Simulated scan of single mutants.
Amino acid sequence: MPTHSPIHSFTHSLRSPHGRLLDLRQPQLMGILNITPDSFYSGSRLSPTDETALLHRAEAMLAAGAAALDVGGYSSRPGADDIAPTEELRRLLPAIAALRRAFPAAFISVDTFRAAVAAEAVAAGADMVNDIGGGTLDADMLATVARLGVPYCLMHLRGTPQTMRTLTHYDEDLVLTILRFFRDQLERLRLVNGGHPPADVLLDPGFGFAKNAPQNFELLRRLPELAPLGHGLLVGLSRKAMVHKFLDLSPDTALNGTTALHAWALRGGARLLRVHDVAEARQVVRLHEMLG
């Protein structure tokens, strides 16, 4: 574990256009709600027709300490099937409506790379857009989030979920490449935002997205190098291949390894952990706060 303390300039909260706040002055947790039949971790899958199961899981996550819920209708696992926007919306909109009715104060993120889907989800009550494409998979995404005035998570990705496994070669230093990507996308977001710097933006380095196992571990070790960009970091490591394949496990048995990497991520400056297992991740955050 590194002995230095990373410096962060990001201290503010994310402000939803619906009036809700996500306070990131201290690290927080975002619970994963996959309304998909094919997400890589079978334990995370929820049926779009089973509202009871959705609400039960959401309630458990909120009770365990989740500050936000991330609802997705499109599996972004490597090689996942592409689905039409109409199918993505069919899965997402009833789920967001149900969550908003049951938990009116909950901060809800929509996990989508499609601008039209994001706009409908925000209209239905979503508070944030979590875009795995970082504005590269839909040319309208950056202008859409700027127009909506919605908090935005900008992730680093090369290619698509269907092609990213073939795009892990980087001609330059990995972290430098990611820094340049974020710089360029933040500038594009500034321009479509009327020249005003976007404030409510999280950056996600995209563990597992167009990155092989050694690259993922290098990125985790060097996470503090992303701090000078001045935006909070969202980190998604939960039960991913860098945990379960490295340890010769399945996603079902990768909780302990995930917990270890969550500690590294928090030490490296993560402000929001995207997790399947909220109670266990909350223990890591509490211990990190005590040691910090």
Rank of each mutant, 00 (worst) to 15 (best):
P104G: 07
V284E: 11
R239P: 02
V235D: 04
S47F: 01
E172R: 11
D131I: 15
L266P: 13
D131N: 13
M128T: 10
G195Y: 00
L220N: 03
D23K: 02
L203H: 00
V278Y: 02
F113G: 01
R271C: 08
A143F: 04
P27M: 11
S47G: 01
R147G: 12
G65A: 07
R90S: 05
T52M: 06
P94L: 03
K211L: 04
F181P: 02
L237R: 09
K245Y: 03
V145Y: 12
H231C: 01
L179S: 06
T36H: 06
G73S: 11
M61T: 00
L219E: 01
D173A: 08
Y152C: 07
H12C: 04
Q215H: 02
G257V: 15
P27V: 12
H8M: 13
A139R: 09
R190E: 11
L69Q: 02
I96F: 08
A263Q: 15
R114E: 04
A102R: 14
P2T: 10
V235L: 14
V201R: 03
H12I: 02
A95R: 09
L167I: 02
Y74S: 05
S238N: 12
R15K: 14
D23T: 05
I132W: 10
L189S: 05
L148C: 07
P228T: 08
A199W: 05
L14E: 04
A64Q: 08
T86E: 15
L291R: 09
A270Y: 09
I32A: 02
R90D: 08
G149Y: 13
A60T: 14
I7D: 14
S238Q: 11
A64F: 00
P151V: 13
I132V: 15
H231D: 01
R91W: 05
L154N: 04
L137A: 00
L219H: 02
V192S: 01
L202H: 04
G194R: 03
H156R: 06
D248L: 14
A97Q: 14
R286T: 14
E187T: 05
V275T: 14
T3H: 12
V285P: 08
N212L: 01
Q162R: 15
G65D: 08
D171W: 06
K211V: 01
G133I: 10
A199F: 06
A119S: 12
L154I: 08
D81W: 03
A139T: 07
G19M: 12
L176S: 13
D173N: 12
H196G: 00
E280R: 15
H4T: 10
P94K: 08
R188P: 00
R274W: 11
P37W: 10
D204H: 04
R100E: 11
G125F: 12
T86K: 07
I35M: 14
H56E: 15
R147N: 09
H156N: 05
G19K: 10
V175F: 07
M164V: 02
L247P: 09
T253Q: 15
R282M: 14
A95D: 06
A53N: 01
C153F: 10
T11M: 08
R180T: 06
V129P: 11
S42L: 13
H244A: 13
D140F: 01
L24T: 07
P205S: 00
V278D: 03
